[in-house]
Design a protein around this nucleic acid. Structure first.
Length: 467
DNA sequence: CGATCACGG
DNA sequence: ACGCCGTGATCG
């Protein structure tokens, strides 16, 4: 039924597994000198930052000895007990139950505070965010060189689900990776001023090729909508040449449905390009917002959750009413998504599980058979997400297997180094025919028989950051 | 060893 | 219990 029989009859589990072992053997090269240099720099910055923080703390007569800025409890004591700052009602994952005594000081909560405390207090909070970011970079700069094996390469452990306990894996058949956790290396320059990704270098005589499946899980969803309902709208929206889907949604939802104004003009009057332009930061924000709503919806998030995660122009949570209108407008713009959600909800309740594209059955009976309302809702959220996440994993897994098995690419010296959910990173000898390599890699990555078009973006560079 | 925080998709 | 899937450092 459904979608599973229309695709690859087998999940090619053993081929994928062999490719993973090959990828581990290939390993990747690390610029140890770069790590050491940046770590020393970061540690000096950390010491300065800490000095400013301590001075700030003492300026408020907080004289506790051996105060630990890494301790949540101690920071709560400083900010909420000693300085008597109001508790933040929000954190990264949603609401804070203030009445129950819950206190959160993650970056989202600190950000909320920064906009609402006296100007003498705010600098310390900003400094604390800076300290955490510096330490986030140091974590990797310090430990990565330790993973370099005698052969000069780092060989992380990665693997699919249902492997033995000492290997990595997920229930959706995505790969996981550890020792080191290469999938968690920061990509956002604001979170990592020291650019850890620059330490992931191509070996001498090689260049790094990064091949990324564009909007992989959205394409899978588009495929499902065609299979289930013969609905081609989303497939058309992700087709080559189609305008950027998040810009379209932003203008449609905030402009046409909600009739909002930004930069002193109606949002609906702007050209689509403006939503990705640095000249219009407010429009860019709207595009980011609708993108967040889009992915949140795919994973089962509701207006309740968006009420705290979406912010208005003054950085206040938009509230459930506005969030509800945004969700409603987006679902009206892409009706297939709501139809999919309802379909899956019914299916999960009736069958106590959901199949994936590769034919695997995701059992949810441990939730649906409890009869508990919250458990059933959780089962439905997992069921809505599972085919998209699992489908994406099968597609990139098949691509990995095909690229690894391609003798032409192998003989050209191409070696897969990493897989990051929708991205494959390979090293390629600089002397090889790069356009041939590029064409073959792209062909493998788009081979999976989908009813929605899958596109690949390719980048080259001397290191992971550049590529 | 559970909770908090942070990073990625 | 109102967002899915992960790894890991650190605290208490």
């Amino acid at each position: 039924m459904l979608w599973s029989s229309t695709l690859y009859e087998t999940a090619r589990v053993d081929e994928v597994e062999r490719s993973i072992y090959q990828m581990e053997r290939n390993g990747f090269m690390l610029d140890v000198a770069y790590c050491d240099d940046k770590r020393r720099l970061a540690e000096a910055d950390e010491a300065e930052c800490m000095g400013r923080l301590e001075a700030w703390r003492h300026s408020f007569q907080h004289t506790v000895a051996d105060f630990n800025w890494a301790s949540s409890q101690q920071v709560i004591g400083l900010l909420h007990d000693h300085l008597d700052l109001p508790p933040s009602p929000v954190w990264k994952k949603g609401r804070v139950d203030i009445r129950a005594g819950e206190r959160k000081l993650d970056e989202t909560a600190l950000d909320w505070l920064i906009h609402r405390v006296p100007p003498t207090v705010a600098p310390g909070l900003k400094e604390l965010i800076t300290l955490r970011r510096i330490r986030g970079s140091i974590k990797y700069l310090g430990k990565l060189p330790g993973f370099v094996a005698p052969d000069g390469y780092v060989h992380p452990v990665s693997g699919p689900a249902s492997d033995s306990d000492d290997r990595a894996g997920t229930i959706t058949w995505r790969l996981a990776c550890k020792n080191p956790e290469v999938m968690q290396i920061p990509t956002d320059p604001r979170k990592d001023p020291y650019r850890v990704r620059r330490a992931f270098i191509a070996p001498p005589g090689h260049t790094l090729l990064v091949a990324d499946e564009k909007a992989l899980e959205v394409v899978v969803l588009a495929h499902l909508l065609v299979c289930l309902f013969d609905d081609h709208q989303l497939a058309g929206a992700v087709a080559p040449g189609a305008p950027d889907i998040h810009s379209v949604n932003a203008r449609r939802v905030f402009g046409e449905f909600l009739d909002w104004t930004r930069h002193g003009r109606p949002v609906k009057g702007f050209p689509l390009e403006a939503f990705q332009s640095d000249d219009f930061p407010q429009l860019k924000q709207l595009r980011q917002d609708i993108k967040a709503v889009w992915y949140g919806l795919m994973y089962g998030k509701s207006a309740y959750g968006f009420a705290t995660s979406l912010r208005d122009e003054n950085d206040n949570p938009v509230g459930e009413e506005v969030a509800g209108r945004i969700v409603e407008a987006l679902l009206a713009a892409i009706p297939g998504v709501a139809r999919y959600q309802n379909y899956v909800a019914e299916y999960v309740v009736r069958h106590h599980g959901i199949p994936g594209l590769g034919g695997a059955w995701c059992d949810l009976s441990y939730l649906t058979k409890t009869g508990n309302e919250w458990a059933v809702k959780r089962a439905i959220r997992i069921g809505q997400n599972y085919p998209c996440q699992e489908g994406g994993a099968r597609i990139i897994g098949a691509a990995l297997a095909d690229i690894t098995a391609d003798r032409v690419l192998w003989d050209a010296g191409l070696r897969v180094e990493r897989q990051v959910h929708d991205e494959l990173d390979c090293r390629v000898p600089t002397a090889s025919d790069l356009s041939m390599v590029k064409d073959r890699v792209e062909a493998h990555m788009t081979r999976f028989p989908l009813k929605a078009p899958l596109q690949v973006s390719l980048g080259y560079g001397a290191n992971w950051d550049e590529a």
